[in-house]
Design a protein around this nucleic acid. Sequence first.
DNA 1: ATGCCAACTAAGAGTTGA
Length: 365
Amino acid sequence: MPKRAHATEGLEEGKLHPAKRLRASQASPEAVVEANSSQFTGTETVTSSATAGERPSITTVISWNAETSAPFLDTHPRKLASYGITSSATKGDKPNVLRQLITRHHFPDFVCLQEVRGRHGDTEWIAALAAAANGAEGPKYKAYTSLNRATRGARHFGVVTFAKDPSQVAVAREVEWDVEGRVMVLEMHDGWALINVYALNGSEYPWVDQSAPNKPTGKTRNQRKREFNKLLLEEVKQMQARGLRVVLIGDFNISLTKRDCYPRLRTEYPHALARKEFNEVVIPQAGVVDIFREVHGDKKGFSWFAKGKPQGTDCARVDYALVDRSLVDNVAEIAYLEDQEERAHSDHAPILLKLRDMDKIEQLD
DNA sequence: ATGCCAACTAAGAGTTGA
């Protein structure tokens, strides 16, 4: 049975609506201004190829494995009422680090979070999460959540994609093959799709299918991890067959090559096999590119930093953007926001991705 | 290089996370 995301009312599935296409340059004037400023990123901005007098429209995406959303919301009902769900710039005397991230980066068009750790039925919690991106000033984001369907146990996994301009979104949906809250798909009127992913962290513990929690699957989480990646590949192929260009972003829990790890790549069999399949099957068959490597070559870049250790002594690049080959020339910037301030409480650094002219991509259909 | 740990849920132990 199809599972609908939370904020998808009024959206039709399956078909895009080119007639309703919206120019991103009209929708996001802040993003266009931001294209000329790398003040907060500390990275070089790729020079625009636009001709003089023509300013490229820029779509900015930030992806962050927040590890937990607790620091920017409060799930206790009394606390929710006390600060009011519409005003979450601060939670009590604690700063809202999500709001700070979004503000510091001039209100990106999309914000993808992973490991937000809520359950599908947590109505008040979901309202608090949706409110956490919005303050008194700035745009009001719409939140599209995919959350664990489990009714028992700890709150784990969960992704949310915040959209500054929901009118760009033709379809917001989860996927048929996941009930853990690991994938949020936004299909845009402009012919591309933003896929927010929190892939499995492998282990030899059994994998429990939360759609039938009492029935043993006979699979380990390492096995399900590889199965998840194959299912994601099939999902991508189906979307491409419908004419969509894909941008996958999030935490894939796989380091792709030796240079993506310090001090060393995990070479134990389950990790090595998952990596091999991802590199040799998933990425090539999906026709996507690890855009950080494409743009920056061998440059160091890490997205995960071991807790309790000095930064840089134990780290890996497991979060990345996998961009459709046909969109490589649309990429204006890709960077990891590795500073402690950017990571806040999380052991993961946010990813900053800027795409130009996404309102002008060639329609395949 | 994780799981001896820490955090979480939900009422005791089980699950998760580079």
